[in-house]
């Protein structure tokens, strides 16, 4: 596990030093600042749209960051040939997978925390109010959603190059984020095989919609009860473990070709 943590530290250092995350934070702050300065038909004191847009951006940017960071790690090790010197150390492939995931997840969660703080600060500056307990719950569930997304990114990247892994991860997680919540509406009129396929998709893909508390935060519905929260966290953890196991199965006997060294 210690070796996994060391691998995670290298992921952290890379993200921090490559500055991608700063660009996203600046983008979020710039967009929120622009929103707060918007002239709303001469009215003042409205803040809900700022928190709403901010949280939407936080979800969007954290998603982009999660897929990019997680899908990049393993293919980059192989492309640069650093995988050979890394695996020559007393480290197992499972430790490598866990380390890469842990690094990607924690760095994305930290960036996400900064996004949430920026939203909270901007809303506070405009004298708005966000229920802190709902906000914290929303952040925690969002982080668990990111755990699944990073695990998916890692799983796809075990057998693909970065571009392919990132594209497939975006399509897969994007469909889960945007399309899945609409399937119960689409499936109403479906019968036979199409209904079965829709049911399989609905029950098979990760449900990010149940980890997305934006509506509760923005419209002051307050936090959910502890048992619901616990069930959702367990669901997210199980999915994360599932995708990490898939990643390990795909990676544990992977052969690295010499051409990757050239």
């Amino acid at each position: 596990m210690t070796k996994g943590l060391i691998i995670a530290v290298t992921v952290w250092l890379k993200v921090i030093r490559k500055k991608d995350v700063y660009v996203l934070l600046i983008l979020l702050s710039a967009l929120l600042s622009w929103l707060t300065t918007m002239n709303i038909f001469g009215l003042g004191g409205t803040t809900r749209y700022v928190s709403d847009t901010g949280l939407l951006l936080a979800w969007f940017l954290a998603w982009i960051l999660a897929v990019n960071v997680s899908a990049r790690e393993l293919p980059e090790e192989e492309n640069r040939g650093t995988i050979f010197s890394l695996l020559a150390k007393p480290i197992t492939r499972a430790e490598l997978i866990i380390g890469k995931w842990l690094g990607a997840w924690t760095v994305v969660c930290t960036a996400n925390a900064v996004f949430y703080l920026a939203i909270w600060a901007i809303v506070a500056v405009k004298s708005g109010y966000i229920d802190p307990s709902a906000m914290i719950q929303g952040f925690v569930l969002h982080c668990f959603a990111l755990a699944i997304i990073t695990a998916i990114g890692i799983a796809f990247s075990t057998r693909m190059n970065f571009d392919a892994a990132a594209t497939i991860s975006f399509v897969f997680t994007g469909a889960s984020l945007l399309l899945l919540p609409r399937i119960p509406e689409f499936a109403v009129k479906e019968k036979g095989l199409r209904a079965v396929v829709m049911s399989l998709i609905y029950h098979g893909l990760p449900h990010f919609d149940i980890l997305d508390m934006r509506q509760r935060i923005v419209h002051d519905y307050g936090p959910v009860d502890v048992s619901t929260m616990a069930a959702l966290v367990i669901y997210a953890m199980l999915l994360t473990v599932f995708f990490l196991v898939i990643a390990w199965l795909a990676y544990r006997k992977k052969l690295f070709s010499r051409s990757e060294l050239m």
């Binding site: 290298t10 250092l13 640069r80 040939g81 650093t82 010197s85 020559a88 007393p90 050239m262």
Partner: peptide
Amino acid sequence: RQRIGYLAEHPDTYRFL
């Protein structure tokens, strides 16, 4: 691999470090 040191052909390492 605990007692091995290995230098790969065309070695590379994390350039951000």
